[in-house]
Design a binder for these strands. Structure first.
Lengths: 144, 144
DNA sequence: TATAAAACCTATTGACAAGGTAGGTTATTT
DNA sequence: AAATAACCTACCTTGTCAATAGGTTTTATA
C-alpha cells in the first residue's frame, strides 16, 4: 500500500506543476492548500531537491519550483523516491529479503508479474497527464 | 504490500491443488512441506472453508481438499479473502477512509487506475495457471 | 467406548514501521 | 539586523503484522 509519504509527495508535485509559473512556491503555501502538515512535508520534499527534480531557494522569497517540464516527471519515479519500497511482496524488496525457497517457489512469478504491471502503469503517467485530466474533471468525480 | 497471510494462503492453495488427488491433506503436512507455522495457518485456512472453497474434514484421517477444479480459483479471490485490503491507498479502502478532498483530488484517478490494473492482473491468474507454469520452471528460475 | 488425530477458536504478545511532532540550524533577501 | 525560507535530526505515539499459546470440538479407528 502506498503510504502518505508517496501520496503527499505526488500531491505536492502536482501542486507545483499547477501553481508555479517559474516563480518559487513556499512549502507553507502548499501545505495550507493541500492541508498537509508543513513539518511533515519538510522531511519529504528535500528528497526531490537532492535528485535535482526540484530547484529550491532558501530565505526570504524562496521556495520550490520544478526543474523540468511536468511531462518529464512520472508518478513511478516520484513514488520510488518517497516510498520505502514499491515491491508487492517482501521477498522482492531486497536480496537479503529473498526467501530461500525462491528458486523453486511456484508463486514467485505471480508477484514478479504484479510488480511489472504496477511499475509499467505508474511509469506511464506523468504530471502533465494529471494536469490534463484535472481540466476534464473540473468539479466532478463521476467519470472514472 | 501483500502480507504473509495472503502469500501463505496462496501457497497452501497451490499445494492442495498439486498434492490432493481427491483425498484429504492435513495442514500438518502442508505446513511441513511449505515450512510455515501450522498454528499460523490454522487461523488463515478456515476462511476458505467458510466460503466453500475448501472441503474440510475433522478428526482422524481428516484434512482439506479443494471443492472445485484448480482453474476455478483466481489469485485475486484468494487474496481478497485473506488480505485486509487490496486497495493501493488508504483512501480507497473503505467509505469511511475516503478523504474529504476526494471530490476534487487530482491524483485519485491515478490510484483508482492502479487498483484496476492490479485487480485485473490478479483476477486473470488461476491456480491451474500456476500449476502449468510450475512444470515449465521445474528446477530453475531463470525464465522470468 | 476410549483414544488419537484432526480442524477450529480466541486471546495475547513482541517487534516494527507509519505518521507525525519538536526544536533546532543554515541560507538568503529586504 | 531581522525576517523568512529551506533543511536536519531526534523523538514519540499508535496500530498492525506475524506469530505463539492454549484451549475446544469433531471424527475415525482400535
Amino acid at each position: 500500500m502506498i503510504s502518505t509519504r508517496g501520496r503527499y509527495a505526488l500531491r505536492v508535485m502536482v501542486d507545483l506543476a499547477k501553481n508555479s509559473q517559474n516563480e518559487f512556491i513556499t512549502l507553507k503555501d502548499i501545505a495550507k492548500r493541500q492541508d498537509i502538515s508543513k513539518k511533515y512535508l519538510e522531511q519529504i520534499i528535500p528528497i526531490f531537491n537532492r535528485e535535482n527534480m526540484l530547484i529550491a531557494s532558501r530565505g526570504y522569497g524562496g521556495g520550490y519550483k520544478l526543474s523540468k517540464s511536468p511531462k518529464e516527471y512520472t508518478v513511478g519515479e516520484i513514488l520510488r523516491l518517497t516510498e520505502s519500497s514499491l515491491a508487492p511482496v517482501a521477498c522482492l524488496e531486497t536480496k537479503s529479503n529473498q526467501c530461500p525457497r525462491a528458486g523453486s517457489c511456484p508463486t514467485l512469478f505471480v508477484w514478479k508479474g504484479l510488480q511489472k504491471v504496477e511499475e509499467e502503469y505508474l511509469n506511464g503517467i506523468t504530471l502533465q497527464d494529471i494536469l490534463d485530466r484535472e481540466i476534464d474533471l473540473s468539479g466532478n468525480d463521476y467519470n472514472i
